[in-house]
Amino acid sequence: MTPAFEPEALSWYEGSARQRIAALVDPGSFREAVGPEERATSPHLALFDLPEQFDDGMIVGQAAFKGTPILVAAQEGRFMGGAVGEVHGAKLVGLLRAAKSLALDVLVLFDTGGVRLQEANAGETAIAEIMRAVVEARLSGSRVVGLIGGRSGCYGGGGLIAGCCSALLVTEQGRIGVTGPEVIETNRGVEEFDARDRALVWRTMGGKHRYLIGGADRYVDDGPEAFRAAVRDVLAAPGRLDLATLDAEQARLERRLARFGAARDATDIWSALGVAEAPAVPGLSTQAFRAVALGRESAHDAR
């Protein structure tokens, strides 16, 4: 007898930032900039007696994707939950500026809970600089693609940056949001949001829901091969950002608010989208889910 189920070799959810990059781009093609050997560590963490990491939880560099040069950034969720600090943020800003001057597309592998509390001012500034750099890169014609499927999700400032991307790819385990579950519970009470109810967290912020309401453009399996295929797809589409796209995005968000603003739970939204058995959605396999998701809200017209 053989096991009924065999997990894949590398789980995106479990992998490290470096494992993800290595498995995503053409084999052996990644060249890191400001690597660990340069020891660009946080200038703040030592003040709090906290451990530093030589890459400050952000890995940036150039690689080839299907033979074409591309820039890649990956957050290391295992270091401080992928939280954004001064150096961490500056490395991404630099990469995005390079994208503009080199006219290359960028892949951002998100895995972050938001800004690092220990260097909050520097971190918040970094988020603003990153958002500006994303927009400038896009205005110059580069595409900035966000890949979301790590343990820490894509929260706080990470969620804001994701909102500026050309396209977002998300797995079932991936989560996208600004305010995280625990913060909502702390501020608004457990009646408003029970952060320990993981099924609630995932059906409110998880990949399936974000894909259904148009908060992500591709829904992918938890492995590098699935991400590779989806990246190839979205890079085939032209990148553009102008007033017309922003108007369309505004209209889309207004429409979404009008349609679903009164919903109490994600399952209400799914029912309104025409999903016959909304409560069954979390348990659906990828294939079955794609079938019920045909009537989903359109993804960003702005992207």
Partner: peptide, 23 residues
């Protein structure tokens, strides 16, 4: 490697409680 893997290995017969689900 996850609760979901366990549910899949059981052929869908194991139904984990809400607090253990990340899907």
């Amino acid at each position: 490697r996850s609760i979901k893997d366990l549910a899949l290995a059981s052929g869908g017969l194991y139904r984990p409680p809400s607090r253990f689900r990340n899907w």
